[in-house]
């Protein structure tokens, strides 16, 4: 017991405070605004399904990074869900390879209305560097209707978050969703 307590006392900093780790006011400010919008528009929870249609895996890493302890967007009410049937929003990455077209269409059909489709990354917007290759269909908009674009190759987690805020503001002002 004594050993145990002395270990606790001798270990400096057993609890790391969030602000020690991340000194990023911009992130938390954007996050707070996103949280308020999601509270009003989506009853506190925005569910996103990410679909990779031939992306380079860079966008996936940035989307995954949003969920890690550094950015931790779940605290603002954004969740990545496993099934398109649970999703409010589809985030599609990649230029849509020919081999992924059917899978993307099926995912789109499986997502309940009203669905928001966001093309994430330059590849998803118009094919990016792969534009014109006959292995790809040059962007998501050629396969399913796209509502919003998030540019970048790849967009950083912060960029994605601030674009989510803009998208929510646009949905709010148009008043078409919920």
């Amino acid at each position: 017991m004594f050993k145990f307590i002395s270990k606790i006392l001798s270990t400096e900093k057993t609890v790391i405070q969030l602000h020690d780790l991340i000194n990023d006011d911009e992130l938390s400010e954007t996050g707070k605004k996103v949280e308020q919008k999601i509270k009003r528009l989506f009853k506190s929870s925005l569910a996103i399904r990410a679909v990779d249609t031939g992306s380079t895996n860079a966008c996936e890493q940035e989307l995954t990074a949003l969920g890690n302890s550094y950015y931790d967007i779940e605290r603002f009410g954004i969740r990545f869900v496993a099934s398109p049937r649970h999703a409010d929003m589809l985030m599609v990455t990649g230029p849509v390879s020919r081999n992924m077209k059917d899978a993307l269409l099926k995912t789109y059909e499986a997502t309940p209305d009203p669905k928001i489709v966001v093309a994430v990354g330059d590849d998803a917007i118009d094919g990016g560097i792969f534009k014109g290759s006959y292995g790809v269909l040059d962007g998501v908009h050629n396969v399913i209707p796209v509502d919003f674009n998030i540019p970048g190759d790849p967009p950083s987690p912060k960029t994605i978050l601030s674009h989510i805020l803009q998208i929510l503001e646009m949905i709010d002002s148009s008043g078409k969703n919920k």
């Binding site: 031939g54 990649g94 390879s97 020919r98 081999n99 992924m100 560097i129 792969f130 292995g135 790809v136």
Partner: peptide, 23 residues
């Protein structure tokens, strides 16, 4: 596998030297 195929090897032949690092 094969879902991600973007025909990238052939793109190297079509694009010039400046594009190669981007690809």
């Amino acid at each position: 596998l094969g879902y991600q195929h973007r025909n990238i090897e052939n793109l190297f032949l079509e694009r010039n030297l400046k594009f190669m690092p981007h690809l």
